[in-house]
Design a protein around this nucleic acid. Structure first.
Lengths: 204, 204
DNA sequence: CTATAAACAGACCTATAAGTCTGTTATCCT
DNA sequence: AGGATAACAGACTTATAGGTCTGTTTATAG
């Protein structure tokens, strides 16, 4: 195989498997050997490609984790239609995926935020950056919804975005207990309920 | 000092300090020595009172953690008045405490749930038990609110309780980033907004 | 007052995990 | 083809942390 390709392929493999295991067991509770065992690779290979466990993790956050959050929670809410419907559908879809996990480990991003808070400000910043992108996109979608006549002009878009993110983080944390189907149903029901206040009213 | 009292006092001290540090640094990232250093105690003292780190942590969860959650989130919502107002005031009060932490570490209970999920089913059960008590009490308060004419009879109390817990867990996770004051304001604003749909309507 | 057991001190053992280093295999360039 | 270097293997080093064990102090009972 071409050297450049081989290099990239190996790095990708190490990163992808790393994210999976970090997600399942947490960063501190996962050893480099755990990951290498899964890949049948050696310490030599790992430290040839990455300087340290931390630098390695940051590369995962900036690449794989960001893309994962973006494709599942941010990209789906872009578009011309009613943003409230798109958000509800997007959340429902994300929860459906979680529901079908045999053993669910929660929302990757918030898990890491919980784990690194107060311990590693550097990594925290990278994680908060992803949150920020999500929030900005939600606010943008809501504002556009106002001009397009889907969303009530009097609501505070930033507050709604914060409330949405909060509830999503929370329900994903709750879903780890196992009763995913029921929790998802209840959550989406109340989310749509909440949206009744947010959507545009014909009559003042 | 009396032996029994001394024993209890020492155990209490070890547990109290343990919860503080576990909360700040997480269970796996906290060593027994970290806690003992803070207390100027020795390994001998610790293992005289507790069998293992795990058994020790479980005793903290069942005693201190449960009481902490109960007194801050469950007890305040009991009473005869409008449950929605009590819940909002209770949440606001809890967030105010969090807001004034110099460095906030999130919601203790959900932090531990995130940390132990998929790793220690035993501890997970004890944590889930506390969540369950909270949920049951919220549902009870809402149901009582229906009979007392404060809460809309057509709402699904269990779904509302789930949604409330979700949003609270989420906002506490978000607040670790530091901008607590603003987040608290936004959250409570939207919570009260949400309650408009839940409260009893005079007109059908 | 003293024997006895509780309460505690701290050196020690052991396992784990991050990171290093030297040696080996695979790939590329000329 | 063959030297050079990238890519990887795996033994080794070092630090940390859970837990043990033996010895010492302190309090209570008789």
């Amino acid at each position: 195989m071409d050297k450049q390709l081989k290099r990239m392929a190996t790095m990708q493999r190490i990163q992808t498997t790393g994210l999976e295991i970090f997600y399942q067991k947490g960063y501190h509770n996962t050893s480099i050997d755990d990951i290498l065992k899964e890949l049948s690779l050696s310490k030599g290979a790992f430290y040839y490609h990455f300087q340290s466990k931390e630098e390695y993790f940051i590369s995962i956050v900036q690449n794989l984790l960001f893309r994962k959050v973006y494709s599942s929670l941010i990209e789906p809410i872009e578009g011309e239609e009613d943003p409230l419907n798109k958000i509800a559908a997007c959340f429902d879809n994300a929860l459906e995926t979680a529901e079908h996990n045999f053993l669910d480990y929660g929302f990757v991003l918030s898990n890491f935020i919980t784990e690194f808070n107060g311990k590693n400000p550097d990594i925290m910043n990278y994680l908060q950056d992803i949150l920020k992108v999500w929030e900005v996109n939600l606010v943008t979608a809501l504002q556009k919804g106002k001009t397009d006549g889907y969303v009530n002009r009097h609501i505070d878009s930033e507050a709604v975005a914060t409330y949405l993110i909060s509830s999503y983080i929370g329900i994903r944390t709750l879903m780890v207990e196992g009763n995913g189907k029921m929790l998802r149903y209840k959550y989406i029901q109340q989310l749509r309920n909440y949206f009744k206040l947010i959507e545009h009213k014909e009559s003042v």
